[in-house]
Write a protein that binds this DNA or RNA. Structure first.
Lengths: 201, 201
DNA sequence: CGAAGATACGGAGATGCTCTCCGCTTTGTC
DNA sequence: GACAAAGCGGAGAGCATCTCCGTATCTTCG
């Protein structure tokens, strides 16, 4: 009883901790440079560890990605709180949140793909993170709808997928920023309620 | 001069023609069943030909995909003409065209990905096909805009990418049809002009 | 028809990626 | 300092793409 209360799980060895952190560090740079589909063995090599070490810490690409995104997810949560605190206009708040989400989903090239898989898979390590953001989106959306700034009938899940979809388009290796802007505008026009309300039918 | 005018290129050998057609046939079924990322070697095996034969006819996945889609593209062109002929309302015509495009882009699982690449790559065999459909989209869109049924400022290219994006979401192996419908509705709300026009600012 | 030449075929194998397995090394503990 | 336990490395199995070239098959022409 001298170590931990129930001795459930011992703290990992220091070299293991160091390796894990280092791999994460290298992976972040590698994904940023070569996209999320780049070779994991290459990352191990670049980190100076054996492939086995990498795969022991992160059994597959999604697990590695999840560890990487979890750090960024904290920033996103902070951003959420900032928007909640600063932005009085519910519609604008939703718009800003969707922007932040979009930025998060384009952190690495090709990221939207595994994220979309995660939304529907629930077994993926990324699934939980995504689920949380869907909920947050729903909160912002509901507030905007109650304030009359967003169309009724739209769901948070749909907006989340919409953001993923536009990020997916932007994420191509193409240098076409106007399309990104256009699609974002298109989507906003899609969820925002027109200024002068039209009769329901 | 008995065969062709300039005898530039001889007609391929009959076995080659037969193989090509057979591979195409098998590939279509295989892609439909297992998605566009399924193994090409598996297709060769299923077609009863060597890998070399497949790769000689279609140097890479995109080439094979292109040959497959070209056939379907003809149907799409026919659909375009049918819409032009039958539908008097320009807005409805655009909506129908986008629907048809969406159906074409979901012919196989995972198809939107290579299509998106093609839109921006121009060297891809698929690029030409896509380019034509962007142009067609632009025509329908312009007509709808002139008829006051679509917002100004939207471009055909953006709508095409939008269709690809929603197809991409739908194409996940998930059984979530409501999201597909929701995203389509979202996009339509994005390009369609509200019934009662709001002042420009 | 039959031979010569062009064309196409098959599949072994080079290369690259993911992921596993297990003998050896390092670390923490007494 | 010694002894588990935990962790490490990298060879290699399995699977995919794509190439290369000896061999088989078509086409043509005398």
């Amino acid at each position: 009883m001298s170590e931990t209360t129930t001795a459930r799980e011992r703290r990992p060895r220091t070299d293991a901790q160091r390796n894990r952190a280092h791999i994460l560090d290298v992976a972040e740079r590698h994904f940023a440079e070569h996209g999320v589909t780049s070779s994991l063995d290459a990352i191990a090599k670049r980190a100076g560890v054996g492939a086995g070490t990498l795969y022991r810490h992160f059994p597959n690409r999604d697990a590695l990605l999840d560890a990487l995104l979890t750090a960024r997810a904290e920033e996103l949560v902070a951003r959420r709180d900032a928007i909640r605190h600063d932005e009085r206009d519910a519609t604008e708040a939703l718009a800003q949140w969707l922007d932040a989400l979009g930025a998060w989903a384009t952190a690495f090239d090709g990221l939207p793909e595994p994220l979309r898989m995660a939304v529907s898979e629930e077994t993926s390590p990324l699934a939980l993170t995504c689920q949380g953001f869907v909920t947050t989106t729903d909160e912002f959306l509901t507030a905007a709808q109650e304030a009359g700034g967003a169309r009724p009938g739209v769901r948070g899940r749909d907006l989340f997928l919409g953001v993923l979809a536009t990020s997916w388009v932007s994420g191509a290796a193409m240098a076409d920023e106007s399309s990104t802007a256009a699609l974002n505008a298109l989507m906003r026009a899609g969820w925002e309620r027109p200024r002068i309300v039209t009769p329901d039918h």
